[in-house]
Amino acid sequence: MGRAVTAARKPDIVCIGAQKAGTSWLHEVLGARPDVWVPPFKELHFFDHRFVPECRRWTPWHVRRGLKAARARHLEQVIPPCPAYLAYIDRLEQGPPLNAIWYEYVFSRAEAQQNCLDVTPEYCCIPAAGVAFFARFLPQTQIVYIIRDPLDRLKSQVRMIAQRRKDAKLTEADWAQILEMPALRSRGDYLNNVPRWDAHFGPERLLYLPFGLIRSDPGDALRQVEAHCALPAQTPVAAGQKVHATAPLDLPEAVLGALTALARPQQRFLEDRFGAGFLQQIA
């Protein structure tokens, strides 16, 4: 914590999604390694803030909240506090946030031998111009895209949204409003998202990791990520631990029917793109 800021950096590894597909697991497992450096908070939102207008309504708030929490953790855990770290947080808070200078400064506290990591699930949704910019801006970065069964992912996302509502019981109108949310479609829209990334990155740069492998064999999932990112093989104790699992919630039959209809074309696309074997591993 006591080291000074060195130089601006860019991430060596970026996990681009999908939301509710194990990205927090990957962030925690890789972040526990001494050779991987993670930012003060998960989900930097640099690329989606730049290329998805609707995200700009809330990404500055997300940054402020993340930095506030990082400062509070430091003051609680580090006694006496590190002036260099607090100055680093100050600069990130004072901004302007979410531009290229800010993004590169985020990684400036990493040691030269560490791999910098950015895990932001919304990146998978950026438009074609955003993916082209990503390719130019990060010409050597390794990318991980975790693919979860479309229906399971949708149900988890809907449960998360519903549980964030303050009302104890959602009405039919509430459920209808949730089903119309653009994010419900975009964040698991493999049919449109995957071809945009395929257009710029082959398997040497972009790893499609089946979500089910994280559940059934987290060690194997981690080994695939390590091999893809040229990281030495390790077996962290927490590899099999669930991170930020969504609490159970019964969904109305009408909601389940609507989600099943949304998932069907996504499931067909995934089978066509990746094959039946991969499809068996994503649930």
Rank of each mutant, 00 (worst) to 15 (best):
R3G: 14
A4H: 12
V5T: 01
R9L: 10
R9N: 11
K10Y: 03
P11Q: 01
I13Q: 00
I16M: 09
A18C: 07
G22S: 10
T23I: 03
W25D: 00
E28S: 10
E28P: 00
V29T: 04
R33I: 07
D35C: 12
V36P: 04
W37D: 02
W37S: 09
V38Q: 07
P39L: 00
K42Q: 10
E43Q: 10
L44A: 04
F47A: 14
F47M: 15
D48S: 06
D48N: 15
F51E: 01
F51V: 08
V52T: 05
V52G: 03
E54W: 12
E54C: 07
R56S: 15
R57S: 15
R57A: 12
W58V: 15
P60T: 13
W61M: 08
H62F: 15
R64T: 10
A69Q: 15
A70R: 04
R71S: 14
A72C: 07
H74L: 13
I79K: 15
I79P: 04
P83F: 09
A84P: 00
A84N: 13
Y85G: 02
L86A: 02
E93T: 11
E93Y: 05
P96C: 14
N99F: 09
W102L: 11
V106M: 12
F107H: 13
A112W: 08
Q114P: 07
N115H: 09
L117G: 02
T120W: 07
P121V: 05
P121D: 08
Y123H: 15
A132I: 02
F134K: 03
L138F: 10
L138K: 01
P139G: 11
I143W: 07
Y145G: 00
I146R: 03
I147G: 03
D149T: 03
L151D: 11
K155P: 05
K155H: 12
M160H: 10
R165F: 13
K166D: 14
D167S: 07
A168Q: 06
T171K: 03
D174W: 08
A176I: 02
A176Q: 07
E180N: 14
L184T: 08
S186W: 06
G188T: 06
L191E: 08
P195C: 04
P195T: 08
R196N: 04
R196I: 02
A199M: 10
H200C: 07
L206R: 01
Y208D: 06
Y208L: 08
Y208T: 05
P210E: 08
L213T: 05
S216I: 02
L222F: 12
L222T: 00
R223V: 02
R223K: 14
V225C: 04
A227G: 03
H228F: 13
H228D: 09
P232R: 12
A233F: 03
Q234W: 01
Q234M: 09
Q234H: 13
Q234I: 06
Q234S: 15
T246G: 09
L249Y: 11
D250M: 04
L251G: 08
P252A: 06
V255P: 00
V255I: 07
L259W: 08
T260L: 05
A261M: 09
L262Y: 09
R264N: 07
P265F: 11
Q266T: 02
F269S: 03
L270R: 02
L270T: 05
L270N: 11
L270G: 08
E271Y: 11
D272I: 08
F274C: 11
G277K: 05
L279D: 10
Q281I: 00
Q281K: 14
